[in-house]
């Protein structure tokens, strides 16, 4: 079943009409090509119009769209010879974070990312992309492996949050995230992070400390889900659309705050309408950002990564 968001409905209706006309052409041999062409023009105009005026809440829904490409979809298109590596060597293997060796245009890279599931069974196995401590520890193990052999790290960020359950608490979810933050800042190889869907607070940041952070046009990045924010502010999770507005969670906002370095365009109507093109655009961005980082001296690389995070924040200096 394809999911159609409310604001996508007019497009879905046009799609259905176009399909019907095509069927008539095929089945009854009546030429409807002019009508089809007219409808397709309408469809494109409508898409442009709708996607020009998206609210932060619309973007939140797009970031969570069940047909949106996930990490593995990007890996399949962008990289060659991906070898998935499993386990944190301490407790287990977390399905919510995947990682492994791959080649980006003849260059070896370590790829790590949060992975959501497509169907119910896979969603459960991947815990809806909510990683447990062993996921963050696996990610860190792979980063250290990359460091040992001088391979750059590319991460894909797509999680509603880190797993908040009893098991995760018992195994130190906070410590696992905190350690990743401290270690990623000091890693001796380049890191590029790409926010491809939901950048869900600490759970996202736990694999997103990088030299370059890129973010897709319709991805979101937030300190708290809009529903949670609305529940705290107004005791009403239904006011999430307002909270989404207040939280400034869009890719453009993140760019303005200096949290991301580039907003990666998506195909018209969002990555889920054309996953292949979406992945090609991400690949181009990676190929632009990675080589200059690989040319930097390690000390310079680490120094500028430190400065990048050290300078984030807006506060004021008030002398009494």
């Amino acid at each position: 079943m394809r999911t159609v968001l409310d604001f996508e409905k007019p497009i879905a209706e046009l799609d259905a009409n176009i399909e019907a006309l095509k069927r008539i052409t095929a089945e009854q041999g009546i030429d409807k090509s002019e009508e089809i062409a007219a409808l397709e023009r309408d469809r494109e105009r409508l898409l442009r119009e709708i996607f020009k005026n998206l609210t932060p809440w619309d973007r939140t829904l797009l970031a969570r769209h069940p047909q949106r490409p996930y990490t593995l979809d990007y890996i399949r298109v962008i990289f060659d010879d991906f070898i998935e590596l499993h386990g944190d060597r301490q407790f287990g293997d977390d399905g919510a974070i995947i990682g492994g060796m791959a080649w980006l245009n003849e260059k070896p890279v370590m790829v790590i990312g949060q992975q959501k599931g497509r169907d119910l069974k896979e969603r459960q196995r991947r815990n809806f992309g909510m990683a447990k401590p062993e996921g963050y520890r696996k990610a860190l193990r792979l980063m250290h492996l990359a460091e040992k052999f001088g391979r750059p790290v590319i991460t894909f960020v797509d999680t509603p949050a880190a797993d908040p359950g009893v098991e995760s608490e018992s195994r130190g979810i906070s410590e696992a995230i905190a350690r990743n933050l401290r270690e990623m800042i000091a890693l001796k190889v380049p890191i590029v992070a790409v926010v491809i869907g939901e950048g869900g607070s600490g759970g996202a940041l736990g694999i997103a400390v990088a030299d370059r952070v890129l973010m897709q046009e319709y991805a979101i990045y937030s300190v708290i889900p809009p529903e949670g924010c609305a529940a705290i502010l107004w005791r009403d999770p239904k006011r999430a659309p307002e909270a989404a507005e207040a939280l400034k969670l869009t890719a453009h906002d993140a760019l303005c705050f200096g949290v991301v370095d580039e907003v990666i365009e998506e195909p018209l109507g969002g990555a889920h309408r054309d996953p292949l093109t979406a992945a090609q655009i991400v690949k181009e961005a990676l190929l632009r950002h990675l080589p200059p980082l690989q040319k930097m001296a390690v000390s310079k690389l680490r120094e500028s990564r430190y400065e990048r995070y050290r300078n984030l924040g807006v506060w004021q200096s008030v002398l009494e």
């Binding site: 401290r182 300190v223 984030l312």
Partner: peptide
Amino acid sequence: MQEGLLSLMQMAKTCAAAAR
């Protein structure tokens, strides 16, 4: 919460200083 993503980034900032 009231400083959104900028608050989130303080996690990385403080851990960066701790790394040193």
